[in-house]
């Protein structure tokens, strides 16, 4: 019973059509490692064609939310729909960019081979890699400014270059919904610019971008919507409405000094 009540937005039943059209709709999601929920009863509806930042303090469940939405980790409860249908049949419409620290970069492989992994669903078990596939992977590398690195061993890349290769792999999937986990964490300024340019281009083409983001100073420049989380959902909406001092205080608590908040370009509420 409790579960049914939680599958609502602050007690208000959700209008059905907003869910069915959303690229990613999450209802009553709870994920727990051990017996401490990392994400508790979260509802989220990401808008088609939007560019949304998921923000919140460390350990707020940002990455967990993303991974659960992708079925990478199994939730304790909750429902995920992608373009109104269960995730299972919609995976081809989603591309995921994991945190770059999540893999071993000494793995014996070249940059181009990593990008070619993005074509796995097309190739299947028996498909043969041909010149067209390679050309497409190279094109994706070119879009992130890494075409010259195609033949490099991945262990030779800097952190920013690793991140760009991961983005290129997602581009190769040619998806409609892009989910990125901290794409700007620990990257150099040139990489940050390259990545945001690519994301904004995708967004202009009508694709939906959802990124876990940690740098509050760039939220207003990079994104049009925010989703604030601290285990529970704090707020969700257009940057102009939801990126407010009150919401940030609610999400970060004492971890964000008032002085820091004053420096941000916040919505005028």
């Amino acid at each position: 019973m409790a579960h049914l009540e939680l599958a609502t937005d602050h007690g208000q039943p959700l209008p059905d059509d907003s869910v069915s059209e959303s690229p990613l709709a999450i209802r009553g999601l709870t994920v727990s490692y051990g017996e401490k929920p990392a994400v508790f009863s979260v509802d989220a509806t990401f808008r088609d064609g939007s560019m949304t930042a998921i923000i919140g303090p460390n350990g707020a469940g940002k990455s967990t939310l993303l991974k659960a939405a992708l079925g990478v980790i199994r939730p304790l409860s909750g429902a995920i729909t992608v373009y109104g249908k269960p995730l299972r049949n919609q995976r081809h419409r989603i591309a995921y960019v994991p945190q770059r620290a999540s893999v071993d970069w000494d793995f014996p492989t070249r940059v181009l081979d990593v990008v070619l992994m993005g074509l796995y669903r097309q190739l299947g078990l028996l498909g043969r890699l041909n010149a067209q596939h390679r050309a497409r992977a190279l094109d994706c590398l070119d879009r992130v400014g890494m075409a010259d690195f195609a033949e490099r061993q991945i262990g030779q890349l800097s952190g920013g270059q690793q991140q760009r290769v991961f983005l290129a792999r997602a581009l190769a999937q040619d998806a409609e919904l892009y989910l990125l986990d901290e794409p700007f964490a620990g990257v150099d300024a040139a990489t940050e610019k390259a990545i945001i340019d690519v994301l904004k281009t995708l967004n202009r083409q009508g694709r939906t971008v959802v990124a876990v983001h940690h740098d509050l100073a760039t939220v207003t420049d990079y994104f049009d919507r925010v989703f604030l989380i601290n285990v529970r959902k704090v707020a969700e909406g257009a940057v102009a409405d939801a990126f407010t001092a009150a919401n940030l205080q609610a999400a970060y608590g004492g971890r964000l000094a008032t002085a820091q908040i004053d420096d941000l370009e916040l919505a005028a509420h």
Binding site: G71, V72, P98, V103, D104, T109, V114, Y120
Partner: peptide
């Protein structure tokens, strides 16, 4: 072997 999370995200 390289990236199990990514594999799961594309349905493997």
């Amino acid at each position: 072997a390289f990236d199990a999370d990514y594999a799961r995200s594309i349905g493997v």
